[in-house]
Design a protein around this nucleic acid. Structure first.
Lengths: 208, 208, 208, 208
DNA sequence: GATGAATGAGAGTTCATTCAT
DNA sequence: GATGAATGAACTCTCATTCAT
C-alpha cells in the first residue's frame, strides 16, 4: 500500500496527531447505534437513546455531530458506502447474473432504511442537499458495472440504464410498504426476469 | 316515547340527548382543524395548535379524542368519506369519462395528504389497523362505478380492476414526491390515456 | 368603592372570565419567589429554583413569563410599585421630615435589590428599555410630594430636585457596596442633615 | 538527596528545574486571555473560550488554576500590578502633575474592568478575601508617591489622602456606568482641577 | 506536563395530559 | 360539558471537570 493511495482523509496531516484510536471507535459506535435507533424509532429519536446504545455520553455525540442533521447525513452516507461497496464483493464471489440479483436485494434493504429518513431528507436542511448527488454518484457506477458484466455474460439484456433501474426498484420498495418485504421481493423478481427476457436474442452488441 | 327515531348512527337513541348541535359543530371544527394542521405540520403537531385552530379548548378535544391516534384515524376516515362521496357527485355532473378523470385527480390530492399520515399509520397502533380496510371498502366501489360507467359509454376499455388502479395511482403519487405534483399529473394523464386506448376495439365483451 | 375606579386592568373585559383567583395567586407567588431568588442567586438563577420556591411547575412560570427578561421586568416593576406606594403611607403616618427620612431608607433597600438586576438591565433586551422611564415616572412624584411637604413644614430647605436626590442616593447605595449598608446609612444621614441645614433660614413661609 | 533546598520563593532554585520558559509563557497567555474574555463575556465565560484564546488545552488551564476563582483572583492581581507599576513609569516620563493625571485615567480603566469582576468578588469565595487588601497595598503607595511629587512641585495642593482619592475615583467610575466613559472623564477632570486649585497658596506646609 | 476527548450533571424549554372552575 | 391553567416528564444542548494518551 503506497502512501499515495487513500491520502490523508482528515487526519495524519500533522505528525503529532493520533489519539484517534478511541475517537474513531466512538464515532463508529455512534453511527451504528444511530442507524439502529433511527430504524427502530425514526430520526426524531432522543439523542440520549443513541448515545446510550453507543455507550458514550451525549456530549461525545454532540461533539462530533453538532446538529441532528449532521448525524442523519452521516448515517445515510455510511449506509450508501456500505451498500455500494458490496457490489464489488458480490461481483467477485458470484456469477454476473447472481451478483446483480443479490445486490439488487441488498439495495432493496437499503431503501427500506432510507424510507425512515425520507421525511427528514425533505426538511430543507442544508446538510441534506448534497445527499441525492451522493446517492447517485455512488450507486450508479456500482450498478452499471454489475449490469454490464451480466450483459457481457449474456445473462441479461443490455441497454438498461442503471439510474432508471435504481429509481424503479426504489419506487417499488417504497410503494409496497403496506404489504412488506414479500411484495417488494415479488416485484423485484419480476423485474429481474424482465431483464433476463430476451437476453439471448440480444447477445449481439446492443445499440440503443 | 315517539322520538325513538332519533337516528342510530352510533349514539343517541336515548331521549335525554340534545346538545348535539354544538357538540357536532365542535367535532367538525376539530376534524377540519386537525386535517389542516396535520397537512401543515405533520401528525405530531402540538395538540394545542389543533384546538386553537378549531376554536375549542384542549379539554374538549381530549374529551372526544382521548388519544392522538383516535384523532388521526377520524381525520383519515373523514377524508376517505369526503373523497369517496365526490365520485357520485362527479358522475352526476359530467360525462363518464370526465367524471373518472376528475375523480382520479381528486384521489391524487387525497393521497398527497395521506402521505403525511403514512408514518403514523405504520406505528402499530391498534386504532390504525382497520384503516386499510376502510380505505378499500369505500374507494373500491366508488371507483368501480366510475370505471363501469365509462366502459359502458365506450370511453375506456373494460376489465380494469378498481383496486389495481387505486394502488397504481397511489404509488405514482407517493413515488413522485421529489418531482412534485407535475410529475404525478403527467403520469396520471398517461394512465388515463392508457385506459382510453383500445376502448372502441374492446367495446364488445372483452375476453381476457 | 365605585366600579369606575380601578378600571379593568386586563381582565373583566369579557363577563364570562374569572378563574383568575388561583392564577393571580400563582403570579404573585412567582413574583415574590423570583424577587427572593434574584436577590440570593442573581438574575441568572435556574428557572426551576424560582418555580420550586413559588410552589408551581416550571410550565406555569413559562406560561406567564415566556422570557426571563419578562420576569425580571415584572419583578422590577413590582418593587418600584411597592416602594413608591409606601411614600403615601409613610406621609400619612409620620411627620413630613420623618416620612422623608424613612422613605429614603426604604428606597435605599430598593436600590440594593436593583443592584442585582443592573447587569441584566444593560443587556440590551427590548423588554428593559421602558424600565428607566417606569422608575422615574413612579419615584419622582412620590419623592417630590415628600420633599414639598417637608419643606412646607420648614423641616428641610426647598429647591431640591427629586430626581437629583434619587440619583444621588442611588449612586451612594451602589458605590458603597463594599462596606455594606452601614456606609450607605451614614452617607444618607449626612445627606438628610444637609437638607435640614438652612431649613430655619428659609423658615419664613413655613406654616405648620 | 542533596536537593533538600527544594525551596525558596515558591519554585525554581533547584538545578533540575527547567521547562519554566514555556510554563511561564502559558501562564501569561492564560492570564491575558482570561482578562480579555472576562472583559468581553464576564467572569462566567466558558473555560474553553479562555483556553482556546490562550492557545492551550483546558487541562493546562486547570493544572494552574484548579478553581475559577483562582483564575479570577490571578487576573485581578495581575491587573493591579500592571496598573500600579505604571505609576513609576509615568512619574519618570512626565512632570509630576501630568503623571498624576495620566495615572488616574489609567486607574479609571482598571476600575472599568474591575466592575466586571464585582459580582464575583462578592460571592464569598475565600480566594477573594485577600483581594481588597491587595488592592490597597499596591495602589495606595503608588498614588501617594504621585501626589506627594505633584504637591512638592507645587502643581497640586497637599494633604489629600491617596485612599480617599482612590475610592472617590472608583465610585465615580462605577456610579456613572449609565452615561458611559464620558461622564467619568468629566468628573475626573473636575476632580483633578480641584486638586490644582489653591496649589500655590498651599505651597507652604499645609495644615489641615 | 500538555492535550483535548469524553463524561454527565444541570439548565432551558416544550407540550401531552389532567383537573379545578 | 367546556375551558384553559397547571403540572412535570422528557428533550435538547452546554460546559465544567476528569483522565487516557
Amino acid at each position: 500500500m503506497t502512501e499515495s493511495s487513500k491520502a490523508a482523509g482528515d487526519e495524519a496531516v500533522e505528525p503529532g496527531r493520533r489519539i484517534r484510536a478511541d475517537a474513531r471507535r466512538n464515532e463508529d459506535a455512534v453511527l451504528e447505534a444511530a442507524k439502529q435507533v433511527f430504524a427502530a424509532s425514526g430520526v426524531d429519536a432522543p439523542v440520549r437513546e443513541i448515545a446510550a446504545r453507543a455507550g458514550v455520553g451525549v456530549g461525545t455525540l454532540y461533539r462530533r455531530f453538532p446538529n441532528r442533521s449532521d448525524l442523519v447525513a452521516a448515517v445515510f452516507r455510511r449506509e450508501v458506502d456500505a451498500c455500494a461497496a458490496e457490489a464489488a464483493a458480490l461481483a467477485a464471489a458470484h456469477s454476473p447474473g447472481e451478483a446483480l440479483g443479490l445486490w439488487l436485494r441488498r439495495y432493496t434493504r437499503f431503501i427500506a432504511t432510507k424510507k425512515g429518513l425520507a421525511a427528514a431528507l425533505h426538511s430543507g436542511d442544508q446538510v441534506f442537499e448534497t445527499l441525492p448527488a451522493y446517492f447517485r454518484t455512488n450507486f450508479e457506477p456500482a450498478l452499471t458495472a454489475l449490469l454490464e458484466a451480466a450483459a457481457a455474460a449474456g445473462e441479461i439484456r443490455g441497454g438498461v440504464a442503471a439510474y432508471d433501474l435504481l429509481r424503479a426498484v426504489g419506487n417499488l420498495s417504497v410503494a409496497s410498504g403496506e404489504e412488506g418485504d414479500q411484495h417488494t421481493q415479488r416485484m423485484l423478481d419480476l423485474l429481474i426476469d424482465g431483464l433476463r427476457y430476451g437476453a439471448a436474442a440480444r447477445q449481439e452488441p446492443t445499440v440503443r
